[in-house]
Simulated scan of single mutants.
Amino acid sequence: MSSFQTLPTTGPIPVSRQLVHKSAAGEVLLDRYERRGADTFSVTAQWPRAHCFYDVVAGRHDPLLVAETARQCVPLLSHLGYGAPADHSQIWENLTWSVEPDALVADSAPAEIRLDVRCQDVVRRGDRLAALSMSVILRRDGALLGSATTRFTNHPASVIARLRGPYRMVLSSDLPATGLPAPLPAGHVGRDRPRDVVLSPGDTPRTFGLRVDGRHPVLFDHTTDHVPGMLLVEAARQATQAVAFPDAALITGMAIEYHRYVELDRPCLIEAEVLLAQAPTHVSTRVCAVQDGEVAFTALVTAQRSPAVGPPAHSY
């Protein structure tokens, strides 16, 4: 069992794919890490001009890159900041994020992002990290891009094995390659390829099935025994667009609670409800993931109709 460096450093450390729990180097958004204080850190990130999943649409970077950038900070800070060994895993309890739409406008170069990260309410069990809260401020060219807060727990492999029990035997890589439910029309959920649609039609206009493609190269970058948290974030985005702005929606924030794991091999319903419509251009929704009659995930989502700000970037 290996550990990552946790001592204060004299300069930035490059971020490897192992530090953010990614298999593909091209999925790593974070670039450099530097400790600023006991619980404060500076991280740089780069958002690509085009991405096979989180692509530029209507002239703007995908706002869910804020959530994914914050997610990558979770393992990074656990390992480098607080000494979690390489085989420890983190479990999300909550994630709240928001973005400034004007700061998402894409240009001809990748977006260079600076993250100021502060951790607090750190809990240890003996000499190991058990939990912490993290707040992230994202800036682009000195201007506020967005923010995120999250709390997560950290566990060694032996604890995860006990928590998961028999569910550890069902792996995403073993899911059938065919037989997924038919997707919603891709254009109604902001996608241009059926493979990227994570919802199938349900019994009502505001109820959907969760489509789990264990071979999706981004949502399942590596093998796992449960539905990834970012797949549920994407489901909340797509459900909001389907019930609010099927033509064009820009998600501006989410307040998410992860209540329990969503299992890979059983049906999961995604329920979306419009809570507040402000004029014809802004909306708030509540999205839930329900499995075996229990709510596993909730998200309060804010969105607005998305006008184009320029020609869309090339999509793969």
Rank of each mutant, 00 (worst) to 15 (best):
I160H: 12
G253V: 00
G26P: 07
H88I: 02
E234I: 01
Q5I: 12
P311H: 09
P217Y: 07
A313R: 14
S315K: 14
S200F: 06
G293K: 13
R206M: 07
R191N: 05
D116E: 13
D192S: 14
Q46T: 15
M169W: 04
D247I: 05
D203W: 05
F220N: 01
G83D: 08
E68S: 02
P201D: 11
S16K: 11
D87E: 14
P312R: 13
L30I: 09
D174L: 08
I137Q: 13
Y316V: 14
T240Y: 03
L144P: 03
V15L: 13
H79S: 12
W97R: 02
R305C: 04
S158P: 07
L19S: 10
F220I: 06
A38K: 10
C73K: 01
R124S: 12
R211H: 08
A299Q: 04
P101A: 01
Q90W: 12
R286P: 04
V233T: 10
N154K: 06
W92E: 05
V301H: 01
F245L: 06
D174I: 01
F4K: 04
G142A: 09
G81R: 06
L231R: 03
G11E: 15
A289R: 12
W92G: 05
Y316D: 11
C119F: 04
P183I: 07
S89Q: 10
I270G: 02
E257L: 07
V287F: 03
A186R: 14
V274D: 03
F220T: 02
P307F: 04
E263P: 07
V159H: 13
E93A: 12
T178L: 09
V243G: 02
T96K: 12
S42W: 05
R164F: 08
V295E: 14
L199G: 02
D247C: 05
L95M: 15
R237F: 00
P205D: 12
R266T: 13
Y258R: 09
